[in-house]
Simulated scan of single mutants.
Amino acid sequence: MTETHATTGTDAPVFPPGRYGRRRQPGRRRPLLVALLAVALVAALGVVSLRLYQQYGDPTYRAEVITYTEITDEQVLVDFRVTVPEGGRAVCVLRARDRAGAQVGLEQVTVTASPGQRHVTTRHRLATSGRAFIGEVLRCRPAA
């Protein structure tokens, strides 16, 4: 009695012709398309990182909240310190939030350093639309 083998010697399956559509050749790749997609991704990430740096990342203009006091339903008094280049000016964005985290006040404040001064301490009364829980400085950037 002889043995019959149901499979052929190759590892690829054999399908009846015209039954399952057109088969792709294995290993066919498009290196140009992959390279173009990689370049586009790197460019998009570069644009996003540049935008975020311009908005949040300038270390020359740094702010820190010292304290926030006199909290009422209409205001909060924010004391903060800004580091700017000597004699420079900065525009800082102040925000007040309520206990739930909702924004109840937002203002832009211009801070000017005297000649030879790098650190400016400022007190600003921030108007609010409800009772604030916290006063904070979001960011500072060069004044135009």
Rank of each mutant, 00 (worst) to 15 (best):
P85H: 11
D58K: 10
V82H: 10
E74I: 00
I66D: 13
V65S: 01
I71F: 00
T83W: 10
Y56C: 06
V84T: 15
V76C: 02
S49Q: 09
V84L: 15
T60E: 13
Y61C: 09
E70V: 04
T83A: 15
R81T: 15
S49N: 05
L50G: 11
P59D: 10
D58Y: 03
V76L: 08
V48P: 00
E70S: 06
L52D: 10
E86G: 11
V76G: 01
P59V: 06
E64V: 09
S49T: 04
L50H: 07
V65T: 12
R51D: 12
P59G: 08
Y56D: 08
T83Q: 15
T69R: 13
E64G: 08
D79Y: 10
E86T: 12
Y61G: 04
T67D: 13
T69C: 03
T72A: 11
V65C: 01
S49F: 02
V84A: 14
R62T: 11
E64H: 10
D79W: 03
V84G: 07
F80A: 03
Q55Y: 06
Y56S: 04
S49H: 08
E64M: 10
Y53Q: 07
R81G: 11
P85I: 12
Y68H: 11
G57M: 03
A63Q: 03
Y68W: 07
Y68G: 01
D58A: 08
V78Y: 05
D73Y: 01
E86L: 12
R81W: 09
L77N: 05
I71R: 07
A63D: 01
Y61T: 06
Q75E: 13
V65H: 05
D58L: 02
V78P: 00
S49V: 02
T72Y: 01
Q75S: 15
D79M: 11
I66V: 15
R62E: 13
D58P: 07
F80V: 03
Q54V: 08
P59L: 06
V84N: 06
V76T: 14
R81N: 05
T83V: 15
P59K: 10
Y68A: 13
I66G: 06
A63G: 08
P85T: 14
P85R: 12
P85V: 09
V82I: 13
G57R: 05
Y56H: 12
L50W: 11
V48N: 06
T67S: 15
R62K: 08
L50K: 03
T83D: 14
V47I: 14
F80Y: 13
R51T: 07
R81Q: 15
D79N: 14
Y56M: 03
R81H: 05
L52F: 06
A63N: 02
Q55E: 14
V47N: 00
T67L: 08
A63I: 04
P59H: 09
S49Y: 00
E64L: 07
Q75K: 12
V78I: 15
V48Q: 02
I66P: 00
Q75Y: 10
Y61R: 09
R81I: 14
T60C: 00
T69S: 15
T83R: 13
E70Y: 07
L77P: 00
V48Y: 01
T69Q: 14
P85M: 08
L52C: 03
P59W: 12
E74Y: 00
Q75V: 06
R81F: 10
E70G: 03
E70I: 00
E74R: 02
E74L: 07
L77M: 13
V84D: 12
D79F: 04
E86K: 15
V47P: 02
E86Q: 15
V78K: 05
